[in-house]
Amino acid sequence: MAEGIFNRVFNILEKMIGVSRIRHSYIVSNIANLETPRYRPKDVDFKQTLIGILQDQKDIDLRRTDPVHFKLSNSSVPIRLSEDKGKWNGYNWINIDKEISRLIENNLNYRIYVDTLLKKITLIKEVIKEGGR
């Protein structure tokens, strides 16, 4: 009955929140392993992932690497991993400045998605309240 309320935009925001959470976990892993020999940083290709979500891609894009599928609230989110392999610095491929700036940037994105979704939720509730008049 209320399925229409939680429309496309709602679902996209929900998925993007999930994506940025996953990206956060990669960055946290990278930071913990800053001094691990031969460690390669992992990251999400945000742009490609977003495109995938917007197109509601269900097929695997054969031109790129397979999207990694995450189980997120009963739907699968196609995450595309970043191709950036990092620069060799003598003992591993991580750069601390890059990771910190990714950390901050991702956090900002996360906050934007959450605040936007929150606004939508508040709006929906307002509509219901007012609609009862």
């Binding site: 009955m1 209320a2 309320i5 939680f6 929900e14 929140i17 999930g18 959470r21 997120l72 609230s73 959450v114 979704l117 939720i121 929906i124 509730k125 219901i128 309240k129």
Partner: peptide, 17 residues
């Protein structure tokens, strides 16, 4: 966040009803 969203959806559905 998944849990919060589920709770919000439940609340909204209930309010509509």
């Amino acid at each position: 966040h998944e849990t919060m969203i589920a709770l919000q959806k439940a609340e909204i559905s209930m309010r509509i009803l």
